[in-house]
Simulated assay, not measured.
Amino acid sequence: MADDQVQRFVIGDVEVLRVVEWQGPHVPVGTLVPDCPPGVWSEHEELVPDHREAGGDRAVLAVQTWVVRSGGRTVLVDTGVGNGRERPGNPLFRMRQGRFPELLAEAGVRPQDVDVVVNTHVHGDHVGWNTHAVDDAWVPTFPHAQYLLPAADDAHFGPRGGYAGGVREVDRLVYEDSVAPVHRAGQAVLWEDGHRIDEHLVLEPAPGHTPGSSVLRVESRGERAVFVGDLVHSPVQILRPECSSCFCLDPRQAAASRRRVLERAAEQRELVVPAHFSGAGAVEVRKARDGFTLHRWAG
Rank of each mutant, 00 (worst) to 15 (best):
V218R: 01
I238W: 09
Y175V: 06
I238C: 05
A164Q: 05
A164L: 12
A145P: 02
I238T: 05
V170L: 10
Q146S: 14
H156N: 11
G222Y: 08
L231P: 00
R160D: 15
F157R: 03
S214H: 01
P241R: 03
L190N: 08
G186L: 02
F142L: 00
Q146F: 08
P207A: 07
E204C: 07
G212S: 09
Y147F: 10
I197L: 14
R217H: 15
A151E: 13
H144W: 07
F227C: 02
L149S: 04
V170T: 15
L201E: 14
R224Q: 13
V202D: 09
H144R: 15
V174K: 00
A185E: 00
Y163W: 15
V228D: 10
D250S: 11
P150F: 02
D154P: 01
L149M: 14
P235L: 12
V215H: 03
V170W: 12
D177H: 12
D250A: 10
H200K: 01
F142Q: 02
L216V: 03
A206R: 11
F247E: 03
W191A: 11
H183L: 13
R240F: 08
A164Y: 09
G229Q: 01
G165L: 14
L203E: 07
A180G: 09
G162F: 09
R240A: 12
R196Y: 12
P181S: 01
E204H: 14
D230M: 01
P207Y: 01
F142P: 00
G229P: 00
I238S: 06
D177R: 10
R160H: 15
D171G: 11
P207T: 14
A155C: 14
Y175T: 07
Y163Q: 13
D154K: 03
S213A: 15
A155P: 02
R217S: 08
V182R: 02
C243S: 08
R160E: 15
H209A: 07
S234G: 08
E199Y: 11
R160I: 15
D171I: 07
E219S: 12
L203A: 14
L173N: 01
D193V: 09
S244F: 04
L249W: 04
E199A: 15
F142G: 00
H209M: 12
R240N: 05
E199D: 13
E176N: 06
S244A: 15
H195N: 06
G186H: 05
E192K: 05
E176Y: 10
V236A: 08
A206C: 13
R196W: 08
V179A: 03
G194D: 15
E242T: 11
E169T: 14
A145Y: 04
G229D: 10
V232P: 07
P140H: 06
A185L: 02
L149P: 00
L216C: 13
A145R: 00
G194M: 11
A188W: 03
P235Q: 04
D153H: 11
E219V: 06
G222N: 08
P143T: 06
P205R: 15
V182Y: 00
D250I: 08
A185H: 06
H156R: 07
L203Q: 11
G158D: 05
G194V: 12
D193T: 07
V182D: 03
W191T: 03
D230R: 05
E242P: 08
L190K: 02
